[in-house]
Amino acid sequence: MHEAAPAKVNLALHLRRRREDGYHDLETIFAFTAFGDTLHAEPADTLTLRIDGEHAEAAGAGPDNLVIRAARALADAAGIHAGAELHLEKRIPVAAGLGGGSADAAATLRLLGRLWQLDWPATRLEALAAGLGADVPACVASQTCFGQGKGETLSRWPHDLAGTPILLVNPRVAVPTGPVFAGWDQADRGGIDAQAPLASLRNDMTPAACAIAPVIGEVLEALSRQPGTTLVRMSGSGATCLALFETVGARDTAAAALAPHGWWHAATTLL
């Protein structure tokens, strides 16, 4: 059995305040791409994880990997003692603002739910996912949605973006989320208006991320110069940036134009 783990992007991310528990209240637009990781599972007596792919070493297959943590959380919540032999094909860069670990955890919940014949509704998986990370509940559904709170309070996004061409670009720099949040200037610049054009919204983590890794600014500038873009933005806490395009041809032309930089990139579409 196998399950796709679509990469997550933030089309906008507005920080509102730092909470007493150390997290931040935020508003964000989650979207998901046809590009991502793939998780495979076979029945077994114990839980094991094997990872391969370009980013396998950075992900690590130890007990702290979110795939193992999600599997154990599901087994404990369901009160079962089944195992699984898990194999993750890791394509999403690590610490890249694409929610790779969260996507993998959500895919684990969906896949093992089927393997172990739990027949749990998505809402029950999302409730369990909240304990694994702020982005994991959104990744369970892997559909464009509006996130509030830490990102775990989800509601429908009223605009259909499925099929939109998107180019993901990462300058091969890992940016830890904690320092980026710590670098936020604490200014609440207002929430997200669902009726406002996407280009008028923002990612409030961009200045702090660029201060840590100035090359992010170079990527954003390079994407902004490409013909046919409708939105250019950093995703999450970086360092991956994204551009939405009017056509697949414009996206592919941009990918070819940026190739000489040697940056990692993926040309794909929104789900």
Rank of each mutant, 00 (worst) to 15 (best):
M1K: 12
H2Q: 14
H2E: 13
E3R: 05
A4H: 15
A7L: 02
K8D: 03
K8E: 04
V9T: 10
L11R: 03
L13N: 03
L15W: 07
L15M: 08
R16A: 12
R18S: 09
R18E: 11
R18W: 11
R18A: 10
G22N: 02
Y23S: 00
F30G: 02
F32W: 06
A34K: 14
G36D: 05
T38K: 13
T38Q: 13
A41R: 01
E42I: 14
E42K: 13
E42Y: 12
P43S: 00
D45R: 15
T46M: 14
T46I: 14
L47E: 06
L47P: 03
D52W: 11
G53H: 07
G53A: 04
E54A: 11
H55S: 08
A58N: 08
A58T: 09
P63N: 06
N65K: 01
I68C: 09
I68L: 13
A75T: 10
A75W: 11
A78K: 06
A78I: 10
G79N: 03
I80D: 12
H81C: 14
G83S: 04
E85L: 15
H87D: 10
H87T: 12
P93S: 02
G100S: 06
G101E: 05
G101A: 08
A107K: 08
A107H: 07
T108N: 08
R110M: 09
R110V: 10
L112C: 03
R114Q: 11
L115G: 01
W116Q: 05
Q117C: 12
Q117E: 15
A122R: 14
A122E: 14
L125G: 04
E126W: 11
V136Q: 02
V140I: 10
A141Q: 15
S142N: 06
Q143D: 15
Q143S: 14
Q143T: 15
C145D: 08
F146L: 09
Q148D: 12
G149S: 00
G151S: 02
G151V: 02
E152A: 03
W157E: 01
W157A: 02
H159R: 14
D160H: 08
L161V: 12
P165G: 02
P165R: 01
I166Q: 05
L168T: 05
L168S: 01
V169S: 00
R172K: 15
T177S: 07
G178F: 12
P179D: 04
V180G: 00
A182L: 11
A182S: 10
D185L: 04
Q186W: 15
I192N: 03
I192Q: 01
P197N: 05
L201A: 07
N203G: 04
N203E: 07
D204H: 04
T206Y: 11
P207Q: 02
A208N: 02
A209C: 08
A209V: 09
C210I: 15
A211D: 13
I216A: 01
I216W: 03
E218K: 11
Q226W: 10
P227S: 03
G228V: 07
L231F: 11
V232H: 03
M234I: 07
S235T: 11
S237C: 09
T240E: 05
C241K: 00
L242F: 13
L242C: 09
F245R: 02
V248G: 14
A250H: 12
A250F: 12
T253D: 13
L258H: 03
P260I: 03
G262E: 08
W264E: 00
H265W: 13
A266K: 04
A267E: 00
A267G: 05
T269Q: 12
T269S: 13
L270V: 10
